[in-house]
Design a protein around this nucleic acid. Structure first.
Lengths: 190, 190, 190, 190
DNA sequence: AATGAATGAGCTTTCATTCAT
DNA sequence: TATGAATGAAAGCTCATTCAT
């Protein structure tokens, strides 16, 4: 029996859910796993969140988006940092989008990923792209970010897994410039 | 006659397994689904393959690799074509790697994807990259391919979903050149 | 004041319990339903009544019995009126006995129905029956009343569901007379 | 492990289901109870019947109706015999309709009872009733049969519980004649 | 060797009930 | 005392897997 503090318990359940869902995906995670991690009874999940799906939605709902704060030419660099160097401890060390891709068997989840990718990444990049087919180029750049996230944390290829932001900087600059048609910085100030 | 049937049945099971696993992922696919698709009893899966996991491994083992046939400067273009335009009917229309990522909840699968990505894509690209950190650059390019495959078929972002090879050609050339440090073609002959 | 509230809350819980149990039966009614209807926390049910079963017993304990007030020859007519035309709003519009039959899965409840039927209906009718096997005839008449209640409100057969007391009057007189061996009225004064 | 005979197992499950549902009602019966009674695993219920509700429907579907075979004036007597003296061992010793009333919390079941009562009892009796409001009188007689069944086996009132067909014969004749407006026999040949 | 009946563990979810505050 | 957080035992149902025939 726990601290009998509703908000704290909800928070612990969300925390545990985030980690499990991120690491193992929706189907491979049972509500008992999550409740066990949180140290409470599984029944509380249903009392507090209604059902497993809603817990998932709530647990993966808080993708932060402060990407727009800062100089335009550093946007891509900020995105790379966000995708692979930010502290996503709560999502098992991975970017939430990469984590959610684990659960992409369900169309619902795919739709949420799509919206997230489009509103957060593609639309921001689209504004920077010169010329026509800006949307396509923005998506191609987003694809790169997603691919980097996956290769680094899901697949764990050797070089990417141990690279740091400085290692990536020149390549970020090169690819971003090539796709957006304008010079971009590979590093960030922060 | 007996042997024939056995082999034919195994083949049908593998075929069905490939499609189901690709489209719905490992967890969301039941052995009964697969057996049903193949028109045989589920018991045969255990007789022939031992268990579900081994069926999965066998079903996803045949990623073909004729990528090296052809001019070097078209390698990346061939890879893009392979990732998103080849006829992966047997894998539900997606590249096998993308399909396998659906089932990446299990470390086993991740390992297999890693091996595949490294031996087939990274190593081939590494040979083309000039200068040091060739491996990292090869991985970054592989990441792009993987990301494109995912955004196109899993996430289905609008522009990528309807792009064809010609739309991508100039961007392929630009990015590949930027990362590999040498001029690359965006199209293929074939 | 404290006591007042406690009593008022108990009363509201009993009220809500009566309706739910009557309409949906014991098993299909949850203590949270009842507490919700009464606007209080479910815990109070256990504080006040001990457990669900005792709440049920208490909620269904007050079957009124003013059937004996009035002329003897109108007794059966009064019973019919009581069974199907009285205002059993508190029991979901049905006679409490019919409502309790919904919960007759438990022997306890059956016993309580038996006592109620025997003390309230059978014994009153037995006094009116001429000749021997008076008890049997009284029970047969009680059976009719129960059957009418059930067909009317549980099963909802078409003719009975829309009949009023006048439609039934001649048949009540005929059957009562046939079973009791003496002339009975089919209508009541009230 | 049992005899590995699908039909025999299905039959045993239906048998066990009939008894449990009849005695305890739908809600109070668990699929594990039924499977336990039948000596097999509960999973088979879902394999063979789909779900609990369909098992219930199938288990209670076989209400026989040979009531029309025989002389018209003995119809009511045959019905009484059917309701309370036939060997309903498979339904826990009660007439299936009475047994189904235990599960009348669900509108589905009520509807099935209504149809059964109307097509089997009311319509047969309606043909015998003279004059107008024949339907109402047929329903009133059906109500009596239902009431008798309930008082005898659910409530178990003393006189009815130990009566035999001969004890009831004169009363059957009297009530049937009173409601149908024509002489009826209280006994049957068979 | 092949079929499909049977199994049992585990899933999400509900519910009566307890107990800390 | 009263609130509501927490619990644990079931419930219906699915699934990979085994094994008699």
């Amino acid at each position: 029996m726990r601290k009998r503090d509703r908000e704290a318990t909800k928070a612990r359940l969300l925390e545990a859910a985030r980690l499990r869902f991120a690491r193992e995906g929706y189907d491979a995670t049972s509500v008992r796993d999550i409740a066990g991690d949180a140290g409470v009874d599984a029944g509380l999940i249903f009392r507090y969140f209604g059902n497993k799906k809603r817990l998932f939605d709530e647990a993966t709902a808080d993708i932060p988006a402060d990407l727009l704060d800062g100089p335009e030419e550093e946007l891509v660099a900020r995105m790379v940092r966000s995708v692979i160097f930010a502290d996503w401890t709560r999502y098992g060390g991975e970017h939430p989008l990469v984590a959610m891709l684990r659960s992409s068997a369900h169309e619902d989840t795919r739709q949420r990923i799509r919206e997230e990718v489009c509103t957060t990444y593609v639309s921001a990049l689209e504004n920077l792209a010169e010329g026509d087919d800006a949307e396509l180029r923005a998506e191609l750049l987003s694809a790169w970010l997603v691919g980097i996230g996956i290769l680094r944390s899901v697949v764990a290829t050797p070089a990417l897994a141990k690279a740091d932001l400085d290692d990536l900087a020149p390549h970020v600059a090169a690819v971003a410039a090539g796709l957006l048609g304008r010079p971009m910085s590979g590093t960030t100030d922060a």
